[in-house]
Design a protein around this nucleic acid. Structure first.
Lengths: 186, 186
DNA sequence: CAGTATGTTTAGTATGTTCTGAATAAAGAG
DNA sequence: CTCTTTATTCAGAACATACTAAACATACTG
């Protein structure tokens, strides 16, 4: 027996396969690379950290592709590298707490996409205000949009600062949250 | 002079151009076709409904492309066709209320993407429970995910039923919402 | 009715993205 | 130091999507 009994992963169970494939499709609909989403799905349901070559074999994609995908997932901070005693290879594991995953991805996308949009909108509003000949209607629309996004963004900021515990509480209130907020706000 | 003095649209102002282009880029990041997003942006800031050929000329894309994009936007129910007296052409206008736009798109995407995901997850959980040899860890992860998405989905359902007025109230509460919910929930 | 304006569909092209295999780099083992 | 294992980078192939122009369909005009 060789010293290294590596890449002895079992193929995916039908359920695991179904989940991984669907997660991949979902990813593509939200602008996330299919393989990236599949790798994440796989790590999410895996009871132990997996090395890159095992992921590649399980998903039947090139090693290099897995490498890139893992790098991206690490960039989103929902996957990290860990090491296993007696194994030189990097192993990867996903965050397991679903709220934490959601929180992290949302935060990151907000930072990368919403915040820059806010900056552009601010510039647009500035410019349209500075120009007296600018279309008043366009100005109004842009201002509306800026205000809305700013407000939603702020609200969101607060929401994602909730610890998972608070979230569970909030979710228990289902059916009452809007009524409550409606009263306070009305 | 011909009877029809059509397609006399003025080119976009620099600000309008900036907004339209950025909106297009944003779209692509969220899995929305660039042209579709641009057409929407244009209609959103336009003080009057626009006919397809005018949109095509303004955005410098093919008529056919605009036709497809408009059809998609109508599918999302954020753009509708209107008619102008003395003009046979269809004219298109966007919903102008930002909350309404957000609400409508979110609802539609939930229906198209989240709901089917929930169904797949339910199936996965069913199957993994039925099989006594299934990996217990995977079962736990899938159950977690299903519960989380179900709860978020329900909460979201409620939120998007808020009228725009209630939303404004909620947004005024910024900084207190989480505290409030935390107390009720805690 | 013939002619024209308008709108949609379609087939092919162009563009952009993802994925692979090979080359390269880095690091550990002997 | 050399050989091996592991990881990354890169150029191009494969694939997917978006876009155009042309053909087609519809419906209005005179």
């Amino acid at each position: 027996m060789s010293v290294h009994t590596k890449t002895t992963q079992s193929p995916l169970t039908p359920v695991a396969q179904k989940f991984v494939l669907h997660w991949g499709e979902m990813g593509t609909r939200w602008g996330i690379n299919r393989t990236v989403a599949q790798v994440h799905a796989l790590l999410f349901i895996s009871p132990r950290p997996l090395p890159a070559d095992e992921i590649a074999e399980t998903l039947a994609v090139a090693r290099s592709n897995v490498s890139t995908s893992l790098r991206e997932l690490q960039g989103w901070r929902i996957v990290r590298v860990v090491h296993v005693l007696g194994d030189r290879r990097d192993h990867f594991e996903s965050i397991k707490d679903v709220w934490e995953i959601f929180r992290t991805i949302s935060e990151e996308r907000k930072r990368r996409e919403i915040d820059p949009t806010l900056r552009v909108l601010e510039e647009c509003v500035q410019e349209v205000k500075a120009n007296p000949h600018g279309d008043a209607y366009t100005r109004e629309r842009l201002t509306d949009m800026l205000e809305f996004l700013t407000a939603m963004s702020g609200l969101f900021e607060e929401a994602i600062r909730m610890p998972a515990g608070t979230l569970k509480g909030v979710l228990k209130l289902r059916g009452k949250v809007v009524t409550m907020l409606g009263k306070k706000a009305g």
